[in-house]
Design a protein around this nucleic acid. Structure first.
Lengths: 332, 332
DNA sequence: CTGTTAGCGCATTCAT
DNA sequence: ATGAATGCGCTAACAG
């Protein structure tokens, strides 16, 4: 494989001139530039990115960090797509790291998973843990970082975050149901300690207040977003509560409710309306009212944020849409 | 950022000893090994991958090449997942290249898209073009390559290929319909020049022959796998042909047929059975009979093949399943 | 506008 | 078992 010296020698110029040519530096005469380019092409020379990265400290690679614990979700796929397409615009590339936010063995960090020497210019972290070792490592490396999802509360220095406005989404979904005449609306939330749950509760409360509906804590639940949990909750609330609508933290929970409703002879949406807060593109019957989030766009925005020098505390992106469908009904 | 010299100096040893320690070389006394490790940990040293790659010629990165012309398909997502998870097992990572197989401007290769200096050890190419410039470049670079999908016919040296057995799939689908009593079965194929179309035709013919059904060329069509094309074909064949079943080259085509059938008042599966040859995970109503291919597994296999030194001409993987559902009906 | 020199951080001979 | 020297291929700072 030809290197810069071969070209320089054949062209009768110095290495730095060749380097200048390939880096688009202006201080090379047109004549020499052409000559160098011609010879380089002849002998099949092209600068070695590894070598140049060693001095420039730039690889043109951005790390996308996805938790390794479960299969990729719809969101992961779309983020990968958005990030890689956006990087492509500036001839950069994505490298995927499937790395858990906490070490498997909590006491000892796997030395092979140390990020310190990874050949990336910057990093995007998807849905980090509350105490995420990757973030600290990355900060130590002085990489610029963008987090997609909630910032870990302990986040020492300010880290740029990108997320959808969960308060607003929850508010709008609740309001939508209220406008259809629903007053007894159950909210199935995620883990109560997660910021997203708190946000969703805020939006829910805000909408209720706006419609002068008194908040009843008996109408709120928490879940782990599995279908099984949806079934479990369904079997419980369908019997004990007389709500007319349910907002679920995810499509999976909704799916569990569907199963349980069928078993109990409850009709959706005739007996009960269900509005999910998104998560997958799973199809249900009757088709589920849910929230579509443009994760691909979130990915693109994350890339844009990486090179944004301003210190931004927490960027909120409005890239969602309520998908109105057959699982809700007006009761006016 | 600490480097190997810092460690060597503090430990009172030479750089090469430090190097030996981190590369697991045996010729270092335990005493010194511990000392070096301790000091490295203290000052936060870890070998720089860029620098070591410069001499070892190995980056631990595998390129996955996906065509950039359209949005990612279901297949792409699953391949990304399979490849990256398999690489992860050996502490390697995936870097995504969204690069068209042919240069946008056919006469002139974009110098920025040259692969020659990319920091990858090997490459996996998804569904290459017939004349794919990326493959030639990669071969010039002496990278090991695995192709997922059909090998380009012109493929100069032998390149490892990985694909599902399209003949067999098509054969089994056709047979399935034949066993349900169907005799007039339309086959909507992809581009007639693509190997996959030829294979599917082979399987189709084989099954027909086995059941002594004479082949009628009027019952075969070609498509570009868009939903629009499905509608177009539907409007044509629903009127003119009296087939009882249709095999479509993709779920999208099937979706087009669904639309057109609805418009024409044709019931699926009562009037006509539809069996798709896979492609997406789009849900239709009535739910579509289609072929599920385990692309994630294909991705894993591709990674395994990369490090397989044997010269294998064309590896066929049986990782599919017929998904029987509501769009077909027995007419016995 | 061009060339010389000096690293970047490491792995790899080859001595010892 | 350890160390000194050399080179991987390039960019950057400076000198001319």
């Amino acid at each position: 494989m030809a290197n810069i010296n071969d070209v320089a020698k054949k062209a009768g110029v110095s290495k730095s001139t060749v380097s200048n040519v390939f880096n688009g530096k202006k201080n090379v005469s047109d004549e020499i530039r052409q000559k160098v380019l011609k010879i380089a092409d002849d002998i099949g020379y092209y600068p070695n990115k590894l070598a140049s990265a060693l001095t420039t400290k730039r690889t043109g690679l951005t790390g996308l960090f996805i938790d390794n614990n479960s299969k990729f979700r719809y969101m992961d796929y779309k983020l990968i797509e958005g990030v890689s397409r956006e990087l492509k615009k500036s001839n950069k590339h994505i490298i995927l790291y499937l790395q858990a936010g906490k070490s498997d063995d909590d006491n000892q960090i796997d030395i092979n998973n140390k990020l310190i020497s990874e050949p990336i210019d910057d990093a995007i972290i998807v849905a980090p843990m509350v105490k995420d070792i990757r973030i600290n490592e990355l900060i130590d490396m002085r990489k610029s970082i963008v987090i997609i999802g909630q910032a870990p509360n302990n986040s020492l220095p300010k880290v740029k975050c990108l997320d959808v406005d969960n308060i607003k989404i929850s508010y709008e979904v609740t309001k939508y149901l209220l406008e259809l005449g629903h007053r007894k609306i159950t909210l199935i939330n995620s883990d109560p300690n997660m910021t997203i749950s708190i946000d969703r509760m805020k939006g829910y409360l805000a909408a209720l207040k706006e419609y002068n509906v008194e908040f009843n804590p008996e109408y709120t639940f928490n879940s782990d977003n599995t279908e099984a949990m949806g079934e479990q909750l369904g079997s419980r609330i369908f019997k004990s509560l007389d709500m007319t609508a349910v907002i679920t933290s995810s499509d999976e929970i909704a799916s569990g409710l569907y199963n349980e409703a069928k078993k109990a002879g409850i009709s959706i949406p005739d007996d009960i309306s269900i509005f999910a807060l998104g998560g997958t593109d799973k199809k249900l019957n009757p088709s589920l009212c849910t929230v579509y989030v443009d994760y691909e766009m979130l990915g693109r925005e994350a890339v844009a944020l990486l090179s944004n020098k301003e210190v931004i505390d927490n960027q909120v992106i409005d890239s969602y849409k309520l998908l109105i469908s057959d699982s809700i009904k007006s009761i006016l």
